[in-house]
């Protein structure tokens, strides 16, 4: 009997520290990587400004959230930020369209090399990071409200009678549910609607799509609308879960690119898979297995060390190492995609 409880305890421990945070973080990365991959598939460049775009979306959402909170509006147990999110999406989409009209469009007409776009995106990265810091300041911002937990560790213990608690934060639940809805909508759009199909055609073969009467301006505009929306959602969810700080979003660019490349740049399915691969391996490799092993081995034996493969500080290195392995072994990524 104790053997079964021990295994369940070990599972609860792993779920609490690896599975649940991994699913939430993976969803955030997946949404971010989807944005990068959409830009890559249609506009054919790596958008270095995507992290700052996420930050911009989160900033607008936070400002609206504060305004709503000031008016006494709330969303019951759910965070008020969800009510503010649509405005954040609209703001980010408008910003993306504006930048495209006044900056990217010129280079598209010039048929500029991808690396020129990359440098342009660095310029936009500067502008956005300046604007965000100017408007909201460089400090930490907490804007999560409502219930903090869906499932509290103590409630879980009482329910199951296990020693190990399993807690699910509201932000984690909201993240996963929102990500599922967004991804479902995106795939429905890409695979079922006429516009979505025309986008896939454009991404697959630009000239052929033009010949078939697909308007490139429309495809590009829709790409930016989707990218802006994805960025605003990803940025807000990340901020809700981990606290908003402008500085961290630049650092997110690396795991996001790693997710997109691991899955296969330009492939939406790959971006999602990549996000979860990166998030879960970060947590699995930096988790201290000491207590799990203690539960799984018979008797009272406990390992001496923490049994941790990598120090927690090296989380970022995990995404990099996975990126390097993929570049070495299969540069096209798991789903070897190039098209939508």
């Amino acid at each position: 009997m104790t053997a079964v409880t021990d295994i369940l305890n070990a599972l609860a421990l792993l779920s609490n520290f690896v599975l649940v945070p991994g699913l939430a973080y993976g969803s955030q990365l997946a949404l971010g990587a989807l944005g990068v991959t959409m830009v890559y598939a249609v506009l054919r460049f790596s958008n270095f400004a995507h992290g700052e775009t996420m930050s911009f979306g989160a900033m607008i959402t936070i400002l609206v959230t504060w305004w709503l909170q000031g008016k006494g509006v709330n969303f019951g147990p759910l965070p008020t930020a969800l009510l503010a999110l649509p405005i954040g999406i609209i703001g980010t989409v408008l910003m993306c369209l504006l930048f495209d009209r006044f900056i990217y469009r010129y280079y598209r007409r010039q048929k500029a090399a991808p690396v020129t776009y990359l440098i342009v995106s660095v310029g936009i990265l500067f502008i956005l990071s300046g604007v965000v810091r100017f408007v909201i300041g460089p400090q930490d911002r907490m804007f999560a409200d409502g219930e903090r937990f869906i499932l509290k560790a103590r409630a879980f213990k009482e329910m199951t009678g296990l020693d190990q608690g399993l807690a699910i934060k509201t932000s984690q639940g909201v993240t996963v549910v929102t990500a599922v809805i967004i991804v479902a909508l995106l795939f429905w759009f890409l695979n079922r609607t006429r516009t979505g199909k025309s986008m896939r055609a454009y991404s697959d073969n630009e000239d052929l799509a033009l010949l078939s009467g697909i308007s490139p301006a429309r495809v590009v505009a829709i790409t930016w609308i989707i990218t802006g929306a994805l960025a605003a959602v990803a940025g807000t969810l990340y901020g809700l879960d981990k606290g908003y700080k402008p500085f961290t979003y630049l650092g997110l660019v690396l795991p996001i690119f790693a997710s997109a490349i691991v899955g296969g740049v330009g492939n939406p399915l790959g971006a999602i898979a990549g996000g979860f691969v990166i998030a879960l391996s970060e947590l699995l490799l930096t988790f201290a297995y000491k207590r799990v092993i203690a539960y799984l081995t018979p008797g009272d034996w406990v390992p001496d060390g923490l049994v941790q493969l990598l120090a927690t500080d090296y989380k970022l290195a995990v995404s990099f190492v996975i990126l390097v392995i993929v570049l070495l072994v299969k540069p096209t990524g798991m789903f070897s995609g190039k098209t939508l």
Binding site: I124, G130, R133, F134, G137
Partner: peptide
């Protein structure tokens, strides 16, 4: 208080203007 951050945006604008 946040005036110092305008320099980031300025650099971005300078880069884009030169590129264009």
């Amino acid at each position: 208080e946040n005036a110092a951050h305008t320099r980031l945006a300025t650099m971005g604008v300078v880069l884009l203007l030169v590129l264009r």
